[in-house]
Amino acid sequence: MIPHERSLVKKLENEPFALIGVNSDNRERYDSEIEEMGVTWRSFMQDTTSGPIPTKWNVTGWPTIYIIDAKGVIRYKNLRDSDEDKAMEEAVMQLLAEMKKEGASE
């Protein structure tokens, strides 16, 4: 998961795209891994899987992913393709293309 997220963030660094995390590691673990794993994206820090954000969003499995379009609408959740990394990338590319198309027609 993490290597793919890293390459997606890198690949789309000049696009209107953001990967936002909700991280449930304890702080020590997070700090010790972040550099080595090349994590560059921003996260809401929760410290535990039972933090307020995963609890409110009813997250029971990790990772859980929501894909939200430029207007703020939830477009995908629970992508569980046989290749979920690929499914995530395709969904993002489709939403970016949709956004450009709408921008051009306005």
């Binding site: 953001a18 673990r29 994206w41 990772p63 992913i65």
Partner: peptide, 10 residues
């Protein structure tokens, strides 16, 4: 922006 909201951990 298009946002991937990712509940994650190491």
């Amino acid at each position: 922006q298009v946002v991937v909201l990712d509940f994650w951990g190491f």
